[in-house]
Design a protein around this nucleic acid. Sequence first.
DNA 1: ACAGCCATGTAAGTCGTTACATGATTGC
DNA 2: GCAATCATGTAACGACTTACATGGCTGT
Lengths: 225, 225
Amino acid sequence: MSLRHALLAILAVEPMTGYELTKQFDRSAANVWHAPHSQIYPELRKLETAGLVTAESVARGDHGIKRTYSITEAGLDVLVGWVEELDPPAPDRDAFQLKATYLEYGSFANARRQFEAHLDYHEELRRRWEVHAQVLEQRATALMQRRLEVMPPELHDALVAYKVHVYRGLAERARHEARWARRGIALVEALGAALPAEDSGLREHGEGLREHAELDDHPELSERS
Amino acid sequence: MSLRHALLAILAVEPMTGYELTKQFDRSAANVWHAPHSQIYPELRKLETAGLVTAESVARGDHGIKRTYSITEAGLDVLVGWVEELDPPAPDRDAFQLKATYLEYGSFANARRQFEAHLDYHEELRRRWEVHAQVLEQRATALMQRRLEVMPPELHDALVAYKVHVYRGLAERARHEARWARRGIALVEALGAALPAEDSGLREHGEGLREHAELDDHPELSERS
DNA sequence: ACAGCCATGTAAGTCGTTACATGATTGC
DNA sequence: GCAATCATGTAACGACTTACATGGCTGT
């Protein structure tokens, strides 16, 4: 349900076509809630059906049409209602943490590679969020400037401050992830040093594991506790 | 695609019924990749069709059946292959960060409430991950003990260390989220102090906003700055 | 003429959520 | 006899992904 609200939040600034909306979305909300245009166009139709936005068709070329969407009163109410709702925490789902849990099924070299990729990605992300936070703080994006024109001046500081707080938080989160990945690399090195001979992991110890596993077919040999 | 691999990683320990698997899953992988049993049973059928697991039906009561699943060689290969793959970073999708971005559409009291709920949740999570990391470090879960029996001893330290690293990372991530939420509360207080009179937000300034928005239909009336 | 961006979609398939449904065994 | 927990599903729906498809306008 987040996508519809993100779209409403952008349309609350000013009327836009689906394409313009998609672009503004990519530069703002998509940073925390990604969605491709193939999800946005149909969602706009649904919002229209629900009466949360209205669309005005404008000719474009000979038989093309543009649709300019505007938020309605009802849409504004839904947006405010959503902001005031406490929603239940989303179920955890982190593919990398999952994989990291089972790194013993691969080699140390692989584990290192995994953490390194994680590190690079999050260092990059961190830079990106820091820049974005600064740009927002300086109120320098087109969307932000329109927002400020449209919102009552008493709310300007809050409007900017919330967004900056989010992106600074993301930058720190990325910094944390990078630090965690660096410690992961150190861990792999320590583990590798303890087993200096080979570049170990299941590929090398694999047959060992498989034989172990096989033993389960003969409970008398693997019974425990 | 993560669910199937999580299931394989658990079945790599020992053969289990769908129900047992679901329980072990809830206590382990579900912490980083949640899935309900209604997703697990069908997924097991798919894994069976793909030849990654085999099922043995055992009678249970008069016409009930139990199906005990075991991982196959092919399943083990897929598991190892997955661990050695670098997968592209998942698109960001964080409902709370999204909402936090638009907190100016609600009252300060609401913004505070939002951050407080976030804080409570992540403080709770942090405790949970810390306990879990310790339990894993002490190799104290049933699944972990079976894992150690089944894996070659040279890999035991790595096996434990990776999992502990993940859960300590989660605990720190939760700590970071809690700190961020606390700074959010402080921010709301500062913003509220600057506007001491009312418990401000769109509900109060709302008509202002709507009129502002309306004015866009009459550009000559809303031009400013 | 062609590239590059503007602009708007559809379609097929997978993944995930929520709710419903059914019956067996175990211990009190 | 009843509750808890064991045990295994289906069904409907909505969210998301990936790929395909089409055509317009703008500048070189």
